[in-house]
Design a protein around this nucleic acid. Structure first.
Lengths: 258, 258
DNA sequence: TAGTGGTCTAGACCACAAT
DNA sequence: TTGTGGTCTAGACCACTAC
C-alpha cells in the first residue's frame, strides 16, 4: 500500500527529503514547478553540497522529481499511464488508433509514434526467441512513442523474413492491417496466444537518452513479448517503459470447472 | 536487448564501473565474491572516496552488486526467479506445495514462507479495491517468502469478513484448501478471473528492511492483485518483489475468430 | 553572464561486521 | 580491533540552461 509512514531517521538528507516530500504532497510544489535548488538547500538547512544533493536524490529516485542540468529540479508528473492487456490482443483492432494512443488518451495525453524498419540478421537472443538460427534474416522495426511530445516508450520488434518475406505485410507500416495479429491473419498465420515477460532493471545509457530519463538511478519496466501461432513464434518484441510512469494490467481468466 | 555497448564516457566513475563490470562478466568475480572495497579503488585508481563510491553505486544500481555495511560489496546473483501466471490460478492446485515454492525450486532455491493473520478495518485503499466502505471488517494476512533463507517476496492480502467470517476458511492458514480460488470454492464463491496490476517504484524504508535490500537506490516490482467472482472482488493483495530478482510471465490467450 | 545540476577532491566521524 | 560501507563537510571545476 502507499501508507508512507514517515519513520523518523537520524539522517540529515532523509529529514530534508521528508520535508520536501511533505511540501510536494501538500501541494506547495505543484507538478512541473521548481524545487529548491541545491544552493537553496545548502543555505536553508545549513548543510554541505553532497547532503543537499543526497536529499534531492531521494526524491528523484522515488520518481517525485526530475533534475535537469543547468535548469533545476522540478516536480514530476506522478500519473501513471495504464497499459491493459485486455482488448489489446484482438483479431479486430480499432481502425482509427493504436492501443498506445488509447492508453495515452486515457491518461489525458496526446499519443504520437514513429517507426523505422530494416532488414537484419537475427542476434543469438532474437534467434532463440523466434526459434531461428543466429544470422537468419529478420525484419527489425524500431518504435518510439511520445506522450504529449515527450518520449515515453521505446520498442524493437523482430519478425522472421521466412514468414513475412515477399508478402504485403513484410513491413509493419505497409498494408492496411493494424497490429501483429490482424497483419498475420492476412497471410494465414493465426496467432492464438501472446506471452509477455515483465522485468524491471536499471536503464541503459542508450535508454536514458532515448527516453529522456535522469542520468543517474533511472529504472525501466521491460516487456519481452512474443506472438505465437501454436508453438511457433511469429514475432518478438522488447518494450521499454520509464519505470515510474507506467502501470501494466493483466486480466487472467480462471477456468470455471476442474 | 542486453547488447551492452560499452560507450566510452569521460567520467572517471563510469570508467571504473565499466572496468569492474567487465571483470564481473569475464568471471573474475564470481557470484557472491567480494568486489574491491572503496579503499581498494581509492588506491588502485587514485581517486577520492566519493568517486570510488559512485563507481560502486553504478554496479549496485544495475543489480550487479550488493553493498553491506561493515562487510563489503559482493557480486549479486543475476538469476531471476520466474513467476508464471499460467497454472498459477487454478481450481485444483497442487496439494503438496505452493506456486511460490515451485517458482523457487525452478530457480534452484529452497522456498519457505511464513504468514500471520489479523482482523482489521479496511483502509480507504483496501475498501476501494474490495468495493467496501472504509472501516468495514477485513482479515489481513501478511506473508513473507524466503529463497534459500533470504527474504525474497513480501505480500499483504485482505479479504472481506462479510464473505469469509464464520466459515472454515476465515483464516488462510486454516482448512485444507490451498490458494484463494480453492478456498473460496469451499464456501461457494466461484472465482472466475484475477486482475494483476504491475508497477515498479522505489522501495520504501519498510520494504528495504523486510526484503533486506540495499539502503539506497533499491526499486521493487509490485503486483496489485484482486480475485473476482463476476464483478465482485473477494480478495485483494499487494505483492512486492526485489526489482532486479524477478521475472513475471503472462500468457495471454487470443480468441480464435472475430 | 549568472545560476543550475554533474563530477571530483580530501578530508572526517559513525554504525556495523568480521576477527 | 580492524576494515567495511554510510553519512557529512567544505571546498573546486565543468557542462548546460535561461536570461
Amino acid at each position: 500500500m502507499t501508507d508512507s509512514q514517515d519513520a523518523p531517521t537520524s539522517h540529515r538528507y532523509e529529514e530534508i527529503a521528508a520535508e520536501l516530500r511533505g511540501a510536494i504532497e501538500r501541494g506547495d510544489f505543484p507538478e512541473g514547478s521548481r524545487l529548491p535548488s541545491e544552493n537553496d538547500i545548502i543555505r536553508d538547512y545549513d548543510v554541505a553540497r553532497n547532503t543537499a544533493r543526497d536529499a534531492l536524490a531521494v526524491l528523484r529516485h522515488e520518481g517525485l522529481a526530475i533534475a535537469r542540468q543547468g535548469s533545476g529540479t522540478v516536480v514530476s508528473t506522478r500519473k501513471r499511464i495504464k497499459r491493459n492487456s485486455q482488448g489489446r490482443y484482438s483479431r479486430t483492432p480499432s481502425k482509427v488508433n493504436s492501443p498506445f494512443e488509447r492508453d495515452a488518451a486515457t491518461a489525458g495525453q496526446r499519443g504520437d509514434w514513429e517507426c523505422e524498419t530494416v532488414k537484419a540478421k537475427a542476434s543469438p537472443e532474437v534467434a532463440r526467441r523466434l526459434s531461428l538460427d543466429t544470422g537468419d534474416p529478420v525484419t527489425q522495426t524500431t518504435y518510439r512513442f511520445f506522450g504529449d511530445g515527450r518520449p515515453i516508450q521505446v520498442s524493437q520488434s523482430w519478425e522472421p523474413l521466412a514468414i513475412t518475406g515477399g508478402t504485403l505485410i513484410e513491413r509493419p507500416e505497409d498494408g492496411s492491417a493494424i497490429g501483429v495479429i490482424a497483419r498475420m491473419d492476412t497471410i494465414g498465420q493465426a496467432v492464438d496466444h501472446v506471452v509477455e515477460k515483465v522485468t524491471a532493471r536499471a536503464a541503459s545509457r542508450e535508454e536514458v537518452k532515448r527516453l529522456d530519463l535522469p542520468t543517474r538511478g533511472a529504472y525501466v519496466l521491460v516487456i519481452e513479448r512474443t506472438h505465437f501461432v501454436g508453438d511457433a513464434p511469429v514475432e518478438t518484441c522488447d518494450i521499454v517503459f520509464p519505470g515510474d510512469r507506467y502501470e501494466l494490467t493483466y486480466d487472467i481468466p480462471v477456468e470455471l470447472k476442474a
